[in-house]
Design a protein around this nucleic acid. Sequence first.
DNA 1: CGAGATTTTGAAAAATTTCAACATTCGTGG
DNA 2: CCACGAATGTTGAAATTTTTCAAAATCTCG
Lengths: 214, 214
Amino acid sequence: MTVHPLPADFGAFPFALPGGHPADSRHAQPVTCHAAGNEIYAQGEKAGCLYQVEFGAVRVYRLLSDGRRQISAFHLAGEVFGFEADGTHHFFAEAIGATGIRTLRLQAAADLSHALLPLALQSLVRAQEHLLVLGRQQAAERVAAFLLDMAERQGVLERFDLPMSRTDIADYLGLTIETVSRVFSKLREKGIIRLHGLRGVEIARWQTLRDMSE
Amino acid sequence: MTVHPLPADFGAFPFALPGGHPADSRHAQPVTCHAAGNEIYAQGEKAGCLYQVEFGAVRVYRLLSDGRRQISAFHLAGEVFGFEADGTHHFFAEAIGATGIRTLRLQAAADLSHALLPLALQSLVRAQEHLLVLGRQQAAERVAAFLLDMAERQGVLERFDLPMSRTDIADYLGLTIETVSRVFSKLREKGIIRLHGLRGVEIARWQTLRDMSE
DNA sequence: CGAGATTTTGAAAAATTTCAACATTCGTGG
DNA sequence: CCACGAATGTTGAAATTTTTCAAAATCTCG
């Protein structure tokens, strides 16, 4: 299975804000449903669209010559991604699980560059925050920051599901899967988080986690 | 010494492209000269300007609660920085050595948001590239990528000067100063680079360095 | 030239990775 | 509905890398 068109009365793209729900459907854009692992765009492809996650999650990554994969960003429902400075994609983007993506063709809407700047700056903020996490020397600090970020971006008070695998998390945090797993276990043993299956997470002590992530 | 006004016929801000030289002086903006360590803006301050480096270099960083400092970006001559998504600075910016900064007040030029988008995307690209460097697990890979980036941004064929200290480099790469120093020494011993004093660098084997940085 | 700051080097300690084995989860089909 | 198998995740122990702490060397500037 690859791509399904959807009935899609989800709302218009440029009026949808990251983290919120689209509110206007006058300029409804095509929405496609991607299965897990589905490619949204590839490195080297010509870029001409922006993408907004309707549901599900997306990973954006680059492959290194030795086969390692560095994930530069995860995108959750409501978030917009796909900005490129020179008209070419320098990353791969793919659906993590079943994911709905709204597409905006930029050529057809040259006049909304003023609406694009805030979205681009949002991407910049996310990249900068991720940068700060990767600069941390301790694995536990990175994982703590990651969990808080995921919880906050999902607007969660207690239990939530991580859309991505441990391998994805490792490639996002610049760690190995084993180190990520060990940190999860340690946080669980200390009663800071509770795990429900492989994906379910519950943050028991928010402040402790915040102190860890600094 | 803090800030000097300059005669400044350097050229107009919005027409200057990162990496190039300003070409039009019809809308010349104020240029100030900062001494080493001079603050350009502080975290928490209201943001209303963009900045372009005329000469010298700038570091942009955040202080962590335990006193550590994470440098998110260095900016060299020609580059524009200071983008903020919400009108507030979330980082500190300061001159590394003697540095000339051209300032653009954004309120006075609301109509050039279309000229701003490419500059913002440029910042995004730099942040994403830095992200990939920080994701590398080996210190030598990070230092190799850093040296190549510095050389290329200065448009250098052979010898060039690093504007920043080893401590700055360490805080930029998420390493300790000792590790950075050891990697420099190792690269020198292997004949991959040559060092001239503390700041001068000469890349002897570009391809070897590229292979290291992947 | 000399003093302070910066950088380099060494050795031990700590953290992470690697390699290997084991456990758990999830989907599928009987 | 349970069992099976593949995929994913966890744990252990050794090897490697990086950090930490300490001291020596080098550089810069007055």
